[in-house]
Structure formats: structure tokens, C-alpha cells
């Protein structure tokens, strides 16, 4: 469903990614693992068109999207949840959802506000709260809800477990499994290996912008050498 080939990208003269390739299918949670600064967030931003590629191509449902403006990519059904949440702090919960709202898609799960409030009961109780007055965990829920209400077919999730209390991390894992169950394709960036194990089907490991490993989550679990070399701090 989502495929990246020969991706090279960076900021200005600084090159961050080198010939990256990856794939993700519907109903699959693919985890992109790597240390801080390895280029995980840059990969997601490049896919989303927030960063001009130096080279390479990105296809979504067989269609090239690497030259499209960001909003067109989003409207094709690719959702993006940034790592720093980027809630509209001046807008209420409902207004934040309104920004993300898109028309229902025949070939993607439909998320109404009611369905989202069942998934995130906290949000349902604070519909008129300003984004800036929410806790970190609540903001993280809102940022995911805001993306889901656009009825995406695939979602890019950038370190959703970062900075959250353990019990919320647990809840986050449930949410991702829920998304998977509904048939979404999820590409997830993580540093937290434990969290990745909870939700991931397959894993890619990148280091300093190069792809170092790809395989199933179970295989990675058995491969101490890879974990030691590319992931341990």
C-alpha cells in the first residue's frame, strides 16, 4: 500500500537519509526503529511531503506521491501524527477535530466523533477544552483522533509513546492494535523497543540514515546482535 524506494532527503545542505526503502501493507503495523537522530522522523516527513526529497520515490496505492503538495497526500488518505503532537492550542478539542475532518471514504474505516470518543473516552468528556489546556497524554490522544477523523487508509505515527506515563503507553498500544484491526496500515517510528514489540508485525532498523535491518518483529527479538549494534544506547 505504501512503498518507499531510494529515498534521499535532508535539511538544506545537511543529508539525513540515504537510499532508504520500505513497504507497508493494509492491516499491518510496521515499526521503524533507530536511535535518536537516526532519521526516523525525517523519513515520515519526507513521505508526507513536508520535506523535499533529494532523490527517490514514494508510492501510495500504486500512485506516485513524492511530488504532491502535503495537503493532497493527506487527502489521498495518508494520515500523519507528528512526534511533538502539534495540537492547535488555541482551538478546542472539537475544533481540532474539525480541522482534520475529511469526507468518508468507501475503502477506509469511517471514524465519527462518537466512535472516536468511544476509543478515547477522555476526549469525549472535554470537547470544549482548549488544546493548550490538556495534559500531554490527552494531547497525544487528540492528535491521533484528529488524524483518524480524516478517515485515512494509512497512518504515519511518530513516537506516540514518547513522554507518556506507563499506563497511557499501554492504552496507546491498545489504540494502535484497534487501528490495525480496522484494516489500517500503520507505519510507526519508535525508540521504545518494548512498545514496538507490543504492536509491531515487522520492523526496519535505521542508523545514521541507512537501512540496517529488516525482518519480522519476532526475528528481531531473537537477533541480539542487531539490537546491540543499532538500538542499544
Amino acid at each position: 500500500m505504501l512503498e518507499v524506494r531510494g529515498l534521499n532527503a535532508g535539511y538544506g545542505p545537511a543529508k539525513i537519509l540515504f537510499d532508504l526503502a520500505l513497504k507497508a501493507a493494509p492491516g499491518e503495523v510496521v515499526v521503524l526503529l533507530g536511535r535518536n537522530g537516526a532519521g526516523k522522523s525525517t523519513t515520515l516527513k519526507s513521505i508526507m511531503g513536508l520535506l523535499r526529497l533529494h532523490a527517490g520515490e514514494v508510492t501510495f496505492e500504486g500512485r506516485r506521491i513524492d511530488r504532491l503538495p502535503t495537503y493532497r497526500i493527506a487527502r489521498l488518505g495518508l494520515g500523519y501524527v507528528p512526534e511533538d503532537r502539534r495540537i492547535f492550542t488555541d482551538l478546542t478539542v472539537m475544533e481540532n477535530l474539525e480541522v482534520g475532518r475529511q469526507a468518508p471514504r468507501a475503502d477506509a474505516p469511517h471514524w465519527s466523533p462518537e466512535r472516536l470518543f468511544t476509543l478515547f473516552p477522555n476526549l469525549g468528556r472535554m470537547q470544549d477544552r482548549l488544546g493548550g489546556r490538556m495534559s500531554g497524554g490527552e494531547q497525544q490522544m487528540l492528535t491521533i483522533a484528529r488524524t483518524l477523523i480524516g478517515n485515512p487508509k494509512a497512518v504515519l505515527l511518530d513516537e506516540p509513546s514518547e513522554g507518556l506515563a506507563p499506563v497511557i503507553v499501554e492504552q496507546m498500544a491498545q489504540t494502535i492494535l484497534e487501528m490495525k484491526k480496522s484494516g489500517l496500515c500503520v507505519l510507526l517510528c519508535e525508540q521504545n523497543l518494548h512498545f514496538a514489540h507490543l504492536v509491531g508485525d515487522r520492523a526496519y532498523v535505521i542508523e545514521k540514515g541507512h537501512l540496517r535491518y529488516s525482518g519480522s518483529m519476532a526475528e528481531l527479538e531473537r537477533d541480539d546482535a542487531v539490537r546491540e549494534q543499532f538500538l542499544s544506547v
Partner: peptide
Amino acid sequence: TRWGTLVRAATQDREMASALGVNQ
């Protein structure tokens, strides 16, 4: 209005608004 909500969102963070499908 929806337009007003989008304007306020874009005033705060245009990039995020476009990543949510808002045509800048």
C-alpha cells in the same frame, strides 16, 4: 464557520494544517 476554524489553525501551524489535508 469551518473556514474560520481552518484560518485559526493555519495561523498557529500551517504545516500541520496541510498535513491534515487543508489546502493552503
